[in-house]
Amino acid sequence: MMTQLANGADLGPEIFQGKGSECVAESEFMRINHMNVLVHQGEETLREGIRGGNFSLKECISCHVVPGDDGKPVAFDSERHFCRSCHDYAAVSIDCFTCHNSVPDVEEFTEKSQNLSIMLPFLGLTENE
């Protein structure tokens, strides 16, 4: 798909591969539609409370993470950031990251806070159940 120069070099942007083996949809589909599916699902999540959809910006960010020189994920202000590598090339500005974080969460939840037992009192259950 990518246009090639006579010497075989790609004309397209240099894109860092994601961590997983494949994207949530065909690359071709994602290239064209990622903004639509992201906005659509974001709206459903916020307004309807629908969780667990395929097209989550959070998942894009954590799968397409690009390690920086210090080994930590690079943020959107770096040219190597996954989104920027393409958007810079296509000269399309994005404002997702004025609100959303461009690097994955540092998981700081303790095991304790994820323990279900704290929920028991208002589920009306006992500890054994």
Partner: peptide, 17 residues
């Protein structure tokens, strides 16, 4: 009698609030 219900909480993925 074992009362086991998570009525108000668990919502399946894809389910609306």
């Amino acid at each position: 009698v074992t009362l086991f219900s998570i009525p108000s909480f668990a919502r399946k993925p894809g389910e609306r609030a």
